[in-house]
Design a protein around this nucleic acid. Structure first.
Length: 306
RNA sequence: GGCGGCGUAGCCGAGUGGCUCAGGCAGAGGUCUGCAAAACCUUUUACGGCGGUUCGAUUCCGCCCGCCGCCU
């Protein structure tokens, strides 16, 4: 690996859905000579194009994209998988003396990439099914008894998190003394994180609403029908994607399209809000509030400062 | 015109003569180490209007307004 490029921070462009990241990313990648590493939990799925707002074929031909279209909708994919793939992409880009530009909205995936997070204890599906059948109180009781340090760190009302801690206890034991914790934010890669977001909440929501309409107008429903015809049992992640879940119900005749559209907009807005919450806590983030056109230059300028 | 039903927060929707007056969605804030576009936590906003009965009415009664259905 080239040591000069290794010292340069990884450029990251994040923000809520609908802020205009793709547009800015393409511009910046063009002027700074970057390759794009997608940081999006849903764009890894092949065929989920319209609803995940994937860059077009032309756009992808213009700038190399990585970590996109990695798996099919029936395949499970999660943060550790992303970590492996994204780090490989970053290392490869840097070894070719180019600069990676990480673009996306999935906060956890970004941290999996740039922070020194080690995922351990891959869950076993059969045991997970067993644990899922147990009531929350039982899992909490077990955890408090066998791994009090873990119990004190999780949200005990959140069954999914508690269950994972039980799995970790079973597989890697109680929390090691050396565990520095999530909040240490030990960087594996130095990074510059630009958060792109519209000036106001109203503007963000307006952008989201009209984007959902234009996705539906460009054949989103057909895309889902197409995917559904090749596979009707989707992975947990893909099957939970906003919009896809609702459109599947429409195709199955369980939901009217107008209702689906409203629900998709509402869920997307909520999602955008949670994204903003995530980045508010990111100390390395620098915020750029405005439209993509307005912010593009400012972000590029900041990225170029070394 | 007659008869009946309904009117509860931005929306859906239970309920009650007084008590911390359901719940869901949306909105706002937050959490986040293998489903993260997920999961979870906290939280604002009500009883169509005017009278009456009552110690007390969102709840009971009357009138009015609005909506829906049926009849002529």
């Amino acid at each position: 690996m080239n040591s000069a490029s290794e010292l340069k921070p990884i450029l990251c462009l994040v923000g809520p859905t609908g802020a205009g990241k793709t547009q800015v990313a393409l511009e910046i990648a063009g002027t700074l000579g970057c390759e794009i590493v997608t940081c999006d939990a849903m764009q890894v799925y092949r065929g989920m194009d319209i609803g995940t707002a994937k860059p077009s074929q032309q756009q992808q031909a213009q700038i190399p994209h990585h970590c996109m279209d990695l798996v099919d909708v029936w395949q499970e994919f999660s943060a550790p998988d992303y970590q492996v793939d994204a780090r490989a992409a970053v290392d490869s880009i840097q070894s070719r003396d180019r600069r990676p530009l990480v673009v996306g909205g999935t906060g956890l995936y970004l941290r999996a990439l740039i922070d020194d997070i080690e995922f351990r204890g891959a869950p076993s599906p059969s045991r997970r099914r067993e644990l899922e059948a147990k009531p929350l109180e039982e899992l909490v009781g077990w955890l408090e008894m066998h791994a009090p340090a873990r119990a004190s760190k999780v949200d005990l009302a959140n069954e999914r998190r508690v269950l994972r801690q039980v799995e970790l206890t079973l597989d890697v034991g109680p929390l090691p003394e050396t565990d520095l914790g999530w909040h240490q934010r030990l960087s594996r890669y130095p990074a510059k994180i630009a958060v792109l977001a519209p000036q106001s909440r109203e503007e963000l929501y307006a952008r989201i609403n009209s984007r959902v309409d234009s996705m539906l107008a460009s054949g989103w429903l057909d895309e889902v029908a197409q995917l559904l015809s090749t596979c009707d049992l989707w992975s947990k992640t893909a099957g939970n994607a906003i919009g896809y879940r609702q459109l599947i119900s429409v195709i199955r005749g369980e939901l009217a399209i107008e209702q689906a559209a409203d629900e998709i907009k509402a869920k997307t807005r909520t999602y955008a809000r949670r994204q903003l919450t995530w980045w508010r806590r990111e100390p390395r983030a620098r915020w750029f509030l405005g439209s993509p056109q307005e912010m593009s230059n400012d972000i590029a300028k900041w990225f170029q400062e070394d």
